[in-house]
Structure formats: C-alpha cells, structure tokens
Design a protein around this nucleic acid. Structure first.
Lengths: 330, 330
DNA sequence: CTTAGAAATGACAACGTTGTCAAAAGACAA
DNA sequence: TTGTCTTTTGACAACGTTGTCATTTCTAAG
C-alpha cells in the first residue's frame, strides 16, 4: 500500500480509501490510485485490515460439519457457501467426525482466526464453551441438531414429524408389523426419529414391540446385520423404517440378499442418490439440506447485521418421495 | 495478551513465548502465564500473529473445487483436510462451478487472506494469473486437471490409461461395437478419456465409428437422451463406455427404460455410490480421490517446508471394479 | 567471594492496515 | 479581495502480535 501511495503520489490513507471504496475521493485521484495498484499488482491484505478495523471483521465464517465428504453435510456446506459468497465472505470448513473434542478444536482454531460467524452441526452435547466466542461477537448458528446448555439460533429438520409421516404411510398400505432401525441414540436426530416412530404407533393404536426396534446402528454393515436378524424373526416384520442414510442402504442390501426386496416394504429417512434406479425404487422421507444451510446462513448474517431478537428455532419440513419400496403391501 | 502479561506479572513477550511454545521460558513462569491466560480465557489472535511473523504464515490453505457438494470434489476436500489438520492448518474451500471467473475470484479472495497454499481443481485454462501468488510465496498444486500456461505441481488420474483398460475389458468379453459417451470436451479429463478410447480401439484394431461417440454431455438428462439415441441405431452398440459419473447414471437410466440393461454392457468412468446395489451392478473404472487429495496436500506442504525441486506431475492409478454390467456378452 | 558464561526475561519497533482528527484546497457569497 | 463553509487529503496512532537485541538473573568454576 505504501508503494502504491508513493507511485500515485498520494498518502497511504487515500489508497486505503480507494481500496475500500470509501466516499470522498476525487475521481482523478481514485483513477491514479487504481492504475498504480494495477501496475504494482497490489493485493489487499485482509489480515492486516481485519486487525485494524474497529469491528474486527474478517469476512470469513467457520463451518463445523460431521464430515465435509458426507453427502448431507456437503450439501449444507454448499448452500452456506452460496449465501456467503454473495456477501464476499469465505468459508472455513472442518469435519468433526462425530467427535466432541474435534468439534471443540475446530471451533478454537476458527476462533483464533477471528471468524465472524460459526455454523455448527454439533457432535458434542455441551456447548457452553461457546459463550466466550459469543462474547467476542461471533454469531453462532446450529444446524441439523440442537445445541446443549446454550441458547442459540438453530435450524432443524422436523425429524419426529417426518418419521411419523413415514410410519403413517406404511400403515396406510396395510402394515402393522413395522420395524425401526436407527442410528446412535446419542445423536439427537436419531433420538427424535425414534420418538416419532413410537408416537405414531401410539396414535395408530399399534402395540409397540421392542423386538422390532434395532438401535445404535452405525454404518452399512451393522445395519445389514441387524436387518438380517430382523428378517429371521418368526412372524417377520412386513415393513422397515430406517432412520438414516447408511442404515437404509444396509437394510436394502439385507433385503436383497434375503430375496425379500419385493416382499417387505421399506421407507428410509433421508434421500439417497440413485434411490430411483434401484428395484424397487426406495421410498424416502427426504430432508432438504439446501434449505437448512441457506436458512442457517441467512440467520447468521442477520445476526451479524445487528439483529438482536431472541434466539429462534427454525424447522425445515421433510417430504415423502414414493418410489415403490414403501408401497409394497404386507 | 497484554492483560495476561499483567496478570502473570511478566512481559508481553514472555506470554508470546509461552503461547508459541518457544524454548527458554522457566517452567515456573510458563505455569503462571498458562494459568493467567486460562483465567482470562485468552484467545490467541492468529491474524495479528500472521501479520507480524517474518514468514507471514497464516496456517490456512485455500482449496478451489468444482463444487464442494459433488462427491468427487468433496472426497478430495476431505483427504486434503486430513493432511492439513495434522499440521494445525485449516482449509478454506470454495466452488468454481466450472466457471473460470469464479475460480479467479476465489483465488483472489484466498490471496487477500494470505493463505499459505492453494490446491486447485481448475475450471479455467489459463493460470498465468497465479504467477503473482507464487511470487508472494504461496505454494500451488493442481488436482484432477492440469494447469494452463503455468508450470506447477499437478496430481492427476491416469484418465486415458483407465479408459483403455475399460475398453480392453469390454473387448475381452467379445464386444466390438463399443460406444463412448463423454462430458464437455473443454474439460481436460474428458478429452483425455476420449483419447484413451480412441487409442485402445486402434490398439485392438477395431475401426473407429464416429456415430458411436457422443460428447459434451453435461448432466444426467443429456446423457440419457444421447444413450436413447445410440440404442436406436440400426446395428446398435453392444457396449457403452461412459466417461463420467452423471453420464453413467443417465446411460443406465436409458438402458433400464429400454429394457436393455441386461443386454447391453456398460462400463462407467468414476465410481458411483450404490452402484453395487443396482441390477446389474455397474462395472466402473474407479478413481481414488482420497489418494489424489492426500498426494496434493503432501506435495503442497513439502513445498511450504522448502522443497525447491522441479515441479512434478503425479499420476494416481485407476482400478476396474467389476460388478456385472461390464461382463455382459454381446 | 568473584567472575565468566549461559539462560531467562523484557523493552521496543514493526508487520499492513484503518480510525481520528487536523490541515489544505475548493466553492461560493459578500 | 476576504471570510465561511464544504470537500478532499494527509499525518499519525493504534490494532495484537513477534523479531531483535539489550538487560537481568542464574549457574558453576576459580
């Protein structure tokens, strides 16, 4: 900047004004500065700028995801990015791998880079450690799962309601023995989905049978094994409701191996790429990661723009996509 | 830091030493500083640190991907992250959407945040604009596609060789009328794959028939339409080789709709989630995005550690995964 | 006890910006 | 011309660190 100022024969402050498009610089000078900075190919130093600015803004936000490579998380990531780029804001992303300490490490690393905002798909259950960040002015929004021990803006899928709709869908096709296969109960969304399952059974006056419920299934293999076990039950379930992506895939594999994929109904929570090309196509309760991410980013930027209203919980609805597997009669 | 120094009754420089784990601080003082910074919950300011440091390192790298939500790109992203976190480095990621100007905007934004390194999956074809970044000390590595008008480290898949293996695989099952469906020819990987197709036909002494080649297919729909057209040819192709992810999906859809999915062989470039659950399973030439990303990150950090050897091109090999669709006889 | 040398600590400037405020230049009226 | 008001410009400090180098404190040998 000093060199640009020297070449344009102005003060360094004037260069700063031009670079930041501050008003009150005569067009003649502005042009001179621009061409000088062009010639020297000057690159504005945002770290110095952010250090000096009174608001300390870095035009960067941090996003903690379960795994940047997981389809749901990366869809969130993308929709957050889309909102951010419009404002010239860049996104630091990191994977927590469902590990509380990694989540904290990431947040600390983001914090020392002075991100303006934080969007977190929580791994842990105690987020009181974020109070320090908030006090420092960082806007914090949770996605997909609610925070623990911290009041904050949150954007969630209607997990329980979605599953209820799925159960009802199966019941409307005549099913009564509907099994449920779920992910780790420590993950709040998994717990919510289980709750939806139980609630809808009650509403439909179907007796809850705990042998039809398999939980804490992490990954395709475990789900496949659990499904195989379920299918071996004496009166076997006539329908399966799977509470997560990979669980759905595992269940489908097991059904196929048992040759029951056209006999036993299946409804999965969360959409799967290619689900429509399978035989039968898999009926799913689809989330809308794009809407979740977009909402979260918008809420966050609104906070950064000064919104001081009480923290809110935003719910993004699911929708059932029927493709065949959920419409098999018992 | 000033406050911590005051509370611990030491100079600010000693606090800096403790924070940076510099040697030469007596254990007693170090403890005092630690507890003081604990009590005030001091958060190290990396932007100030990076501004002052002589090497100007920000412990942050920038990654330009085609789309952070695309499975291949996000797998790259994840493996880069894994290498970076080990060194306490964070990753800024952005999507170019195959748009040259977005790529440049992202690079500029990364540059003004003074990233230490840049990993780019190129959208554009002229990367001479990166000379300025390089002069500033930024390490630059290209992944998936080679740079244009710039000599730089590059990590590529053996596209042509992979396709050749795919064609040979089909030929070994008796196919002679092998069609090729490819992505935009402006994308270098797509061009390479087409080259591999032609080369292998020549090697096998199969005459090249341009009616069997459909290019510039971007997205599932276009691929589906092109496949349908191919299947309507008088002597129709007995096998398809698809040059990209979505093209494979589109081709498979078309085959299914025509009821030819068990008659016409299909080999796709790039693996597809769930490909093993389809009927038939889809045989693919699989890339290894994990290895590509890891290699790129390692090369980049080696450069940052002072490696001054000539720029190199690293090739990551593909492997054929047979699942049924590629083993159908003509 | 002294003294040389090593180890620990601190004072101060500097990194590249922007906020503050004062000074200079321009516009207009009397 | 002068005076007043507005617009444009610049000098300088400060943001929170770390590099440099000087000073103080400790250690161990004589």
């Amino acid at each position: 900047m000093r060199e640009v100022a020297a070449l344009a024969k102005v003060s360094i402050k004037t260069v700063s004004r031009v670079v930041n498009r501050e008003p009150g610089v005569s067009p003649a000078l502005a042009r001179r500065v621009m061409s000088a900075s062009e010639r020297l190919d000057y690159r504005h130093n945002l770290t110095a700028s952010s250090l000096r600015r009174s608001d300390g803004r870095s035009a960067t936000i941090g996003v903690v995801l379960e795994d940047v490579a997981n389809p749901f998380s990366s869809a969130l990531h993308r929709s957050i990015e889309d909102v951010a780029v419009e404002r010239g804001v860049l996104v630091l992303a990191g994977s927590s791998d469902e590990d509380e300490s990694r989540e904290r490490r990431l947040v600390r690393a983001f914090g020392s880079r002075r991100v303006d905002g934080l969007i977190i798909q929580p791994a842990g259950h105690d987020h009181s450690y974020l109070l320090a960040e908030r006090k420092a002015g960082t806007a914090i929004v949770f996605v997909d799962r609610p925070p623990g021990f911290l009041d904050a803006d949150t954007v969630l899928t209607d997990n329980a309601a979605g599953v209820r709709r799925g159960v009802k869908h199966l019941a409307s096709h005549g099913h009564k023995r509907i099994a449920f296969l779920g992910d780790l109960r420590t993950i709040s969304t998994a717990a919510e989905r289980l709750r939806g399952y139980k609630e809808e059974l009650t509403a439909l006056r179907i007796a809850f049978d705990e042998r039809l419920v398999r939980l804490d299934l992490r990954g395709i293999e475990k789900a496949e094994a659990a499904t195989t076990a379920l299918l071996a039950l004496k009166p076997r379930p006539t329908a399966l409701l799977t509470g997560q992506n990979l669980v759905t895939i595992g269940a489908f594999r097991a059904l196929r191996r048992a040759g029951l994929h056209t006999k036993v109904a299946l409804v999965g929570f969360d959409d799967i790429l290619l689900a429509d090309l399978l035989v039968p196509g898999i009926t799913v309760i689809a989330q809308d990661p794009g809407a979740i991410g977009r909402t979260a980013a918008e809420v966050m930027f609104r906070r950064l723009d000064g919104d001081r209203s009480p923290f809110q919980q935003h719910i993004v609805v699911t929708k059932i996509i029927t493709r065949g597997s959920g419409e098999i009669a018992p």
